[in-house]
Write a protein that binds this DNA or RNA. Structure first.
Lengths: 205, 205
DNA sequence: CGTGAGTTTTACCAGTTGGTCAAATCAAAG
DNA sequence: CTTTGATTTGACCAACTGGTAAAACTCACG
């Protein structure tokens, strides 16, 4: 049994390799569609060797998810109440879009889990994410009432930002199949910037 | 072997029950995560009995997909070159949104397949869907050049419509978890109508 | 009613799944 | 260079997977 000592050099390397491999496999097959053998091979280990580092398939998945959720919500958390409303929101959109480009597997891992009903994640969503969303919705509403941005349902506004930005990661193969040689991420930043600018610029009345 | 006769009453009933069950199971677990046994039980049949009507798991999936794709693209197909541009687009958005509310499983089935790299669907996308998208992109561009709607990348415009509307089906559990008792589909139609109206109303210059 | 096609079931199979175990190997501190 | 804990492996298991074969049943139609 591995005791509660500081992790060995080998432990650090192998646990990292396993999580990297698990991200790859889980994000393209979902939890049930992924196999421990596949993850082990991808990580360059044998299956029993992998299970020496993690007690079960579900344990790998949970650690991966916990790690992901920590950083995944950072952009929303850093929506600054003291910044300029329009610029804060537009910057948030661009940051989310960049994350879709730079970490598409993380986005797909999350998408897979939600589309399939979030059986292993609903608790976290209903508590942690909900609290964050409530806080930021209230902030958006204050901005709207102050006339800094146009009025809109704040939660639907957040949903639309998630949806539009993560679409480029989650539906990547479709987007690329329909855009031929053009890189989707060339025009996407400007498109989304324009969309939210037009949507949120206060109409003078 | 079932010959090429007209389908029996029982055949009609059971094939329908199987496809209905398969939609339920495939849409919540993806292809690899779904099991034939699960589909059979859901359809009220034994596994061998199910395999009397369909030769394999993949055959069920393929028929389901073919059936889905036929109707799924109808709203886009019926985007009318002779209608009023703004109203045509807004009506398309609302129709897509209604489909997300009325047929969420179909949307999730499709989402599952795309998120996982569309291994069984990429051909269709690259040919059939691509042709349709090219046609409608050209139409949108004509409307833009005629000044009927604001300029924007036509393909990104289509992607955004798909993304925003299907989000309410694909991420249903998340959306509902974050909206408490409020029904997402109460405010969504107005939100999307406003969004695209502001986005596409020609700025006078 | 009986008869043959259409339908369902029981029993089965080979391959894969997540996971265990004890033995073998390795690494590093003394 | 040895000893002890960390690591890796091969053999294995029970449950499940997609799919098959043949016998048994059911149903409509003459």
């Amino acid at each position: 049994m591995t005791k509660d000592r500081a992790p060995t050099r080998i432990q650090k390397k192998n646990r990292a390799a396993i999580l990297e491999a698990a991200l790859e496999v889980f994000s393209t097959h979902g939890f049930r569609g992924a196999t421990v053998d596949q993850i082990a091979t991808e990580a360059g280990l044998s299956k029993p060797n992998l299970l020496y580092y993690f007690p079960s398939k579900e344990a790998i998945f949970n650690e991966l998810m916990a790690q992901l959720l920590g950083t995944w919500l950072d952009p929303l958390r850093s929506l600054d109440p003291d910044g300029d409303p329009m610029e804060e929101i537009l910057a948030y959109v661009q940051r989310k879009l960049q994350m879709s480009r730079d970490f598409p597997r993380e986005s797909r891992l999350y998408a897979n889990e939600i589309v399939q009903g979030a059986p292993r994640l609903l608790g976290t969503i209903a508590t942690d994410l909900n609290a964050l969303v409530e806080e930021k919705s209230a902030l958006l509403q204050r901005w709207m009432q102050a006339g800094k941005i146009n009025s809109a349902h704040p939660k639907h506004l957040l949903f639309s930002i998630w949806s539009l930005t993560q679409h480029y990661a989650d539906f990547d193969v479709q987007v690329r199949a329909l855009m031929a040689d053009e890189d989707p991420f060339d025009a996407a930043p400007e498109y989304l910037d324009t969309l939210y600018r037009r949507m949120l610029t206060p109409s003078d009345n």
